[in-house]
Every structure is written in structure tokens, then in C-alpha cells.
Design a protein around this nucleic acid. Structure first.
Lengths: 130, 130
DNA sequence: CTGGATCCGCTCTGATACTG
DNA sequence: CAGTATCAGAGCGGATCCAG
């Protein structure tokens, strides 16, 4: 739109913008949380149940980071017992597209990667044993 | 292709495939290296010069991982001094598409994220000072 | 020129226990 | 129910020196 799109978005600014994003979505749970919230807002406990293996600590930290970056909104209802609902913001939803592209690639090539990696390690082990 | 794409690729298998990929491209230099190799094979020194700030160690490790996963090919010419050329494989090139999608999102929203984060931190600091 | 080896610090992550 | 606090472990990433 600005007419200056000829630089690669990946290397554009030396990768700083991309780095900033990867530092967030690169963490173990971020994308899973975002994907889980895709269908609508959820409570803390709901999220915890839908993310097998996550600890309260990591769920809290992940949500805090997402909230800080404006990808997730937090709504606390002043009741007892407390009820807090997390939901994606417009920005948060906009991340799902690119994330899906990456996830698609992952689903398609993950078996390949593991295969190659296994083969590679086997080769190295053999070379070592010999 | 297979007709069984109704599960979300992100949460599909609990995120294992996606995790496997993020564990690789989530590292600081992987995507930068891939992007730098996009226009053709390069020598080790070339890559080092085109990736300001990377250390020899991390360049070596990154290339080794990419090679192990079959995303990058390594061609050593038995000369003196040594000459080693790294290039993207077909699989490696196929990663550029999704990566570009993510980078595009990053370029578009990174300023937003930093802004929000700054605002958030300012708010917290103020609350602390008071 | 291309890398291997080592030391070191930082952050991510998880388990556990405690609070409003 | 929804977090916070603390402790400990593991891995990434960087700087530096050395070798083929």
C-alpha cells in the first residue's frame, strides 16, 4: 500500500519485526491458546482443561503476555466465586490466518522432518560406532 | 487432499506437529537464514556477512539443524582453502510461503504490539510508583 | 575459510505450595 | 475459581579460543 514493499518481509528490517512476533508465538503454549480461543471466549478453568499438560503458571503467563500485546482481552466479573473470561481481540483473530498457514506446512512436512532427522542421526551413530 | 482436513491444523494433534516446526523456526536465526538463502546458494562467509550479529557458533548450529531436517543442502568443495555452499532444498523453499505470511503479519502488527506493550508497562510502572 | 570446543549467563518451563 | 510466589532444571544463545 505504501509502494515500498520490495524488501522481503522476513529480512525487511533485519528480522526485528519477525523476531518480536516469534518471541511470542514461539513459546510453547501461545498458539495453542489462541487456537483454543478461536471459537469464542473461555474461562481460565476451561482453558486449563482444554490444554492438557499446561500448568497454571504457564497458562497465566501466556495469557498475560497475550493480553499485554493486545491479542487477548480479559474480562473479570466481580462475583463470587470469581469468573474471568478470556477472548481473542480483532488483532488476535488476525493472527490465526498466518498461524494456520504455518500449521498447515507443519502438518504436511512434520513426518518428513522427523524421518530425515532420524535417518541423519542413524547415520551419525553408525559413523561413530564404526 | 486426503479429505480429512476438518480438524484445525493448529490443535489437530494437540499441536505436536506445529511444535516440532516451531522448535526449529522459532530459534532466533533459522528463518533469517532460510530467507537469506532464498535467492540462491551462499558460502558460509557470505551468510555470516549477510546476517549482522550472528555468531559463527549459531550460524553453524542453525545450518546443521536445517541440514538435518532436509531444508538446506550442504556442498563442500574439496579445495584449499575450503569452500562450502549452502542452498535451500525443495522442502526448504516450500517453507518460505508460510513464513512470508507470518512475516507479513509481523510487519503489519509489530508496531501495534510494541505500542500496546509500552503502554501496558507504563501503566504498571505508574501503579508501582504510586 | 570453515568450523569445532568450551565457558557462561539468561530465559523458558514445570512442580509445588499458598492466597483472595 | 483464579491466580501468585518460589525453587530448580534444561536449553538457547553469545563470546572466545583453537584446529583442519
Amino acid at each position: 500500500m505504501t509502494g515500498s514493499e520490495r524488501t522481503c518481509p522476513i529480512r525487511g528490517d533485519g528480522g526485528r519485526a519477525l523476531r518480536a512476533v516469534l518471541d511470542r508465538i514461539g513459546t510453547r503454549w501461545t498458539l495453542l491458546v489462541v487456537a483454543t480461543l478461536d471459537r469464542g471466549g473461555l474461562r481460565f478453568g476451561e482453558l486449563e482443561r482444554r490444554l492438557p499438560g499446561i500448568s497454571q503458571r504457564m497458562l497465566t503467563l501466556t495469557l498475560r503476555n497475550l493480553e499485554r500485546d493486545g491479542l487477548v482481552s480479559r474480562t473479570a466479573h466481580p462475583e463470587v466465586p470469581p469468573r474471568v473470561v478470556y477472548a481473542l481481540t480483532a488483532t488476535g483473530r488476525s493472527l490465526i490466518g498466518p498461524a494456520l498457514a504455518l500449521a498447515g506446512w507443519a502438518a504436511e512436512h512434520a513426518p518428513d522432518l522427523e524421518e530425515r532427522r532420524a535417518a541423519h542421526e542413524a547415520r551419525e551413530t553408525a559413523a561413530h560406532d564404526e
